[in-house]
Design a protein around this nucleic acid. Sequence first.
DNA 1: ATTCATGCATTAATTATATTCATGCCTGCA
DNA 2: TGCAGGCATGAATATAATTAATGCATGAAT
Lengths: 316, 316
Amino acid sequence: MNHLPSITALRCLDASARLGSFTLAGKEMHLTQSAVSHHILTLERDLGIALFIRRRGGLELTPPGRMYWEETLHALLLLQRAGHRVKGASRQHSTVTISVPPSFANLWLMPKIGLFVRDNCDITLNLINRQDSGVTRYGEEDASIELSEGNAAGFVSVRLLSLVYHLYGSSELLARLGVPRPSAARGELKDGTLIELLRSAPLIRTSMNDAWPEWLRLSKLDEFVPPARLTDGPVYAQASLALLAVINGTGVALLPRHAVENHLHGRTVVKLSRLGWPATKAYYLQWSDNIPVTPALRRFAEWAETVAESEAEPSA
Amino acid sequence: MNHLPSITALRCLDASARLGSFTLAGKEMHLTQSAVSHHILTLERDLGIALFIRRRGGLELTPPGRMYWEETLHALLLLQRAGHRVKGASRQHSTVTISVPPSFANLWLMPKIGLFVRDNCDITLNLINRQDSGVTRYGEEDASIELSEGNAAGFVSVRLLSLVYHLYGSSELLARLGVPRPSAARGELKDGTLIELLRSAPLIRTSMNDAWPEWLRLSKLDEFVPPARLTDGPVYAQASLALLAVINGTGVALLPRHAVENHLHGRTVVKLSRLGWPATKAYYLQWSDNIPVTPALRRFAEWAETVAESEAEPSA
DNA sequence: ATTCATGCATTAATTATATTCATGCCTGCA
DNA sequence: TGCAGGCATGAATATAATTAATGCATGAAT
């Protein structure tokens, strides 16, 4: 029984294997890439085998590495379950129901929710998809996630995601208009070409949060853009639809970062200006404050807040 | 997956549960009682339950404590197995055969061997019982444990247990002879009663290592005991038989500590004098040095040496 | 070709954690 | 009583984990 690996090292292994990157694993565990690297290297040294093959653009598990990962993960889950059992003797199985706008669910919540489910196997999580435009009716849900200004009277609010709108366009569109694609380094077009673009390309709007007037004023470009352009052109009900329009080269749009994140690396979508408009609205998890908070909701809220905070750091 | 217990804490739990004592658990793990106590207390604090009921003369697992112990132990064994699998891909299953005197096996080796088997599940350990008086013939065994002076030419020797002979008798015998039992604190009889005892009670001898002459000389009592007494009386081939004779009140005997250890706490057997005779012979693990050492033997020898060292400390 | 950005490795420095030391407290026992 | 054995406690210390500051390699962009 001597010389068993440390729990932290095994959690690093799990995170690295799942995320394919020490850097990301470190972020998930609130550690630095260096710490994860150390842990994996000591594991590899102790075991006498290589767990990962380091490749450009991602790690790959070696066959024995994968085997070791699977078996140790099993053990970790066992430990976790053992802990839950003794603690949960009192804490009975419970349910929490959250109503979520589909766009937020797709782009923010779903990629992260797996860990919550895994770490809280005594909670049944019930997500209700709700149209962004829908009216909030507190019915079956314990809480809802909404795009609002927060601090609504009679509600408790936890901010999950602040929105900063940037200007995005597709590579294809730029090529069609003969505009040189901005370098990843500079991250924006020259002022002249930017103005020209705003006069020629359709300005895609979203119905629930039209960022154009504010953004133009902030970037001191409003005088160059005829007001009529802000009322013409397509309008989409959801950010995800606007994104599709951008990808298809329909025009340029102002979108929050999380909506385009997945498409930035592939360079199908490009940021056209460094200037962002921080919206007053943000996504909040909120619930009525005259109904007692269930333990399950409290745990979900605490988890969501933690995740939100840890995600906000890198941008700071 | 947050806040999993540390591996060390779980090993402390296992050892404490098995041995029923933080002190003994500490010894097994080469830690102090304090460290074990700290670990168990943190576990209990984190889990929010009591794992043990502290009683005089031993710990007792609470029902949830037992459940948690069993489940986490399962996880630990899984981790261990995972480690062995990846390492053991190269290291094939192997066998080591050791010939052992029964007395040593019963009193020293068997109580400790369980941990070796558990921690080296890729080794098949083959123990051969050999009469103490038997001649060592290197046949099927890889190594043998013998009572010798060590450093035999042509052999590699690892000292496992030094012998110090003390005088023991049974409470019953003392009562029969009207001698007051020595207090556990003093641990010896007064000189006068001791001499009287040595003149009246049979002096039990062992055939393979008669300690009487040396012990009497060392304790300066030889002049009080008629030489004839050293040749009369029963002789036993093994320490364990001599011990039985002592327990039955047949007489008093000089025995090494490990032979009587199990009976000291129950006070059926009592140490009668502080003076001990350190025998020149000791139990050695030894093997011929002109045959290459198999990896399995090397691991057994290292384990045995470690255990022997850790056991020797308390007496230092 | 050169420069930059990204991701992992490495070493020393720092911080956190584990462990011990020196106690105290309790209980059974002579 | 006084002693011995066993656990708890809190401060001191040793050990291990983590970071910070780099370096090195590899693609991508200019």
